[in-house]
Design a protein around this nucleic acid. Structure first.
Lengths: 314, 314
DNA sequence: AGATCTTACGAACAGCGTAAGGATA
DNA sequence: TATCCTTACGCTGTTCGTAAGATCT
């Protein structure tokens, strides 16, 4: 049976452009030229006879059809890559992988998911080095590191994992929630992250709301404090969804408006080019990517690729 | 991020060879040369550094690793194709598709699944023509037809859908079931399909059992009668799993040994080459394929590519 | 002999990088 | 001007078909 499928490289390019919101950065992440990506996207759009992206100043944004397509394609790509890695000769017994990770992300997101990783890859010996080792790959101690940022670091490959989806949350029952419109939110106490004073403005912009004034509340310098403040009922906070999965599940927090925004910054897995071929790292990378995708699949997203973004948290 | 994936064409070739059990027939179904398929498979095996198939006289058989790989890859491919078709410009409003279908398959398998099809493709007007119209595509009345056979018909493209997985079933509680070994089955009354007197021999062979004698019971000339006989508690019957989904679910029948065999014959969607590009047909074909895959995913399979196979049923 | 898989060779095509062109603020 | 996307050209590697070779019954 002849299949009517686009090529895998085109789909990978599509996914990269969709998550990065830009041909240039997608090309960087794919390690190919920007012109090549442009052509792949165009070819894919011609094949499907639809527009996947809306061309804009400074980047491309997914159309509605593009979003639907991405939601089907991304998990399929992920599954193919994971299955291929799993099918390959398994890594050497006792394979080692040494990483560092930001404390909040580790506690709230990564560690809870590790049992699944060890179930698939019992031979891989994963070691968390002290976070203060940072991302100095010059010593042989650290193989990879979970960092926060926009995915561009010198001398460093970076694969997006999770954290760009930001949701507004509050303690259930304190305010009359969830609200019907973003404008109603503006009147509630809006908790701030000191390093991201524009976060609420950006959010309002991304959901196309234009309140006259924002009721700014107290500020905090870490997401963990912001989380606790929201749980205490002090107001509404903008927090990466991946850091409050447990709180949302258990009902300690509630999403107050069903729209996440896609910030430009997020948690990336970084590693030096010379470790890219390490089998244990490839396996970990593919697994991380699948975990990150699951997070994203469930949310309604308003994209905001070119906002200033939030600063490094914690 | 650079991905370590094989190419899509290689994966499609892999899937085709796996379902057909032969390079030659896979090549026919893909409409490319047999040498090309051979090379794709070899390249894929080199890429994964594992053996996907065991080369045998008259064909190739999946290795255990190959089976695991197929179970991940096939749904992913299916999803990509379905998403791509859905993303394309939707078929013209009021698109027509006229098919014929064998009565038992229609009643037991296809019709119950149609609500899902119409949900995805409300614009497509699907018409079931009388089965006696058969598969005469010379008149413009019939676009495609569900046929039973081994997938090779002259002047006709044929995509495998479902029906090759055969399971032994009986009424619960009548015998002491399920049995621990295939040999114990040989002593129970084995219901026969008159046109497939070797079915039970083949099944025993496929599961590597060698009973001294088979306790052959009454014979029937249609699967629907065989099904009713099994429900009545007359004995154990070998029936395509897709024809007794409802009976297994409701407990009217029970699978007596947890091993299906993959017969060479099954239900195929056939259509003339000049209708292959009909958008409505492509959509229907991709949807059928997904439905068929779901059936297969749940079973333990012992393959039996080169048995004589069962005759056309009903 | 008959069926099947493997391999070799040349042709066609797809994917890439470089680099020039065009649009927008 | 600066940034980003688009397009053109030529190179490279991949995929294909044809067809001959190998193997097994």
């Amino acid at each position: 049976m002849r299949r009517h499928c686009p090529s895998l490289v085109a789909l990978q390019a599509f996914e990269a452009v969709a998550t990065h919101g830009s041909l240039t950065r997608a090309a960087q992440s794919l390690h190919i030229s920007q012109g090549a990506v442009s052509k792949q996207i165009k070819q894919l759009e011609t094949f499907l006879t639809i527009e996947l992206f809306q061309r804009q100043r400074y980047g491309l944004e997914l159309t509605a059809a593009g979003q639907r397509y991405l939601q089907e394609i991304a998990p399929a790509l992920s599954r193919i890559e994971a299955a291929s890695l799993e099918a390959m000769a398994p890594p050497v017994k006792g394979g080692e992988l040494r990483i560092t990770c930001m404390p909040t992300l580790g506690a709230k997101w990564l560690i809870p998911k590790l049992p699944d990783f060890f179930q698939h890859w019992p031979e891989i010996n994963l070691t968390f080095l002290p976070h203060r080792y940072g991302y100095d790959f010059s010593t042989p101690q650290v193989d990879a590191s979970m960092r926060f940022g926009d995915g561009v670091w010198p001398d460093c490959q970076a694969d997006y994992v999770v954290g760009r989806a930001i949701v507004p949350v509050a303690k259930p029952g304190v305010f009359s929630l969830p609200v019907a419109s973003p404008e109603q939110l503006a009147a509630l106490p809006l908790l701030q992250h000191v390093s991201a004073p524009h976060a609420w403005h950006d959010w309002m912009h991304a959901v196309a709301a234009h309140p006259k004034q924002l009721n700014t509340g107290p500020s905090f310098d870490q997401f963990s404090l912001l989380t606790e403040a929201a749980i205490a009922g002090l107001g509404v906070a903008l927090i990466p969804a991946c850091l409050i999965e447990e709180e949302l599940r258990s009902g300690k927090l509630e999403q107050v408006y069903d729209m996440a925004i896609l910030d430009r910054q997020g948690y990336y897995l970084c590693y030096p080019p010379d470790r890219a071929e390490l089998p244990e790292l490839q396996v970990f990378r593919a697994w991380l990517r699948e975990q990150g995708l699951e997070n994203q699949a469930r949310m309604r997203l308003a994209s905001m690729h070119h906002s200033p973004g939030l600063p490094a948290p914690e």
